[in-house]
Simulated scan of single mutants.
Amino acid sequence: MKSQSTIFEPLSVLTARAIALRGPNIDTDQIIPARFLKKDRALGYGQYLFYDARFDEQGELKNHVLNQPDDKRPEILVVEENFGCGSSREGAVYALADYGVRAVIGTTFGDIFHNNCFKNGVLPIRLSAQDHARVMDALATQSTDGVSELTVDLESCEVRWANGQISFEVDAFWRECLLKGLDELSLTLSYQPQIDAFETQYHKSFPWLKTPI
C-alpha cells in the first residue's frame, strides 16, 4: 500500500504476468480512443484501454489478450516499435496505469508518451532490437494461454526470466522517481530540508543578494 507521501506505488522489483502486444506504431488513439477522454478519471480509465480492439459495437468482449480476469491482468507489456506515437494525450498512460500496467518494454516509444509514463508510475524500457527479440522469444516459449512471467528489476536495471536476463538503461532522475513513488515535482520537494539548508548557507555567504521583504 502506498503511503500518503507517495504519488503512486513505488516500483523496485516487479515479478508479474507479461504479454506480448503485437503491432508496430500503436498510437495513443488506439490505447484510449479520444471519445473517452471526457470521462471522469476517478472512475478509472483502465476500462477504456484498447477499447476498440477489446470490445465490439455492442460492448461485448472480443478475443483479445488484454481481456483477462482482474486477478490475471498482465502488469508488464512487451510491445513493438514506436509504441505510444501520435497525439500527446496523457490519458493513454492513465489507461495503462489504471488497468494495472507498471512496465512497458519496447524498442522505441513516442517521445511525449515516454515522458508521461514516468510521471504516472509506469516504467518504459527501451531495448535494442536484439534484446527485445530475446524477451519476445522468452514470452513465446514460456507462455501459457498467451501470458508468461517476467521480472523487471529497477534496482539493478535488469529484465529477467526463467533462463535468461538482459540489462537496460534508464535516466537516473526518473529511476529515483519510480523507486520512491514520486513525480518530478514531489521528488524535488522531498529535498526541501537540503534546499532550505543550502539557501540559508548561501545567504550567509552572500547576504547582499537577499532582497528585503
Rank of each mutant, 00 (worst) to 15 (best):
K2V: 00
Q4I: 14
F8N: 02
E9V: 12
P10T: 08
L14G: 04
P24D: 13
P24M: 09
D27M: 10
D27Y: 08
Q30E: 05
Q30T: 08
Q30S: 07
P33R: 07
R35L: 12
F36M: 04
D40L: 14
A42C: 13
Q47D: 11
F50M: 10
D56R: 01
E60W: 11
L61S: 13
V65D: 10
L66I: 06
E75I: 03
I76M: 09
V79G: 05
E90C: 09
V93F: 07
L96H: 06
D98Y: 03
R102F: 08
V104H: 00
V104E: 06
T108K: 12
F109W: 01
F109M: 02
D111P: 09
C117W: 04
F118N: 03
G121I: 03
L127K: 00
A129S: 10
D131M: 04
D131V: 05
D131G: 02
H132D: 00
V135E: 02
L139K: 10
T151R: 02
T151Y: 01
V159W: 07
R160I: 03
D171V: 12
D171C: 13
A172R: 15
R175T: 12
L179Q: 14
L185G: 13
S186A: 13
P193I: 03
D196W: 08
E199H: 12
T200I: 10
H203V: 01
T211K: 15
P212W: 01
P212G: 07
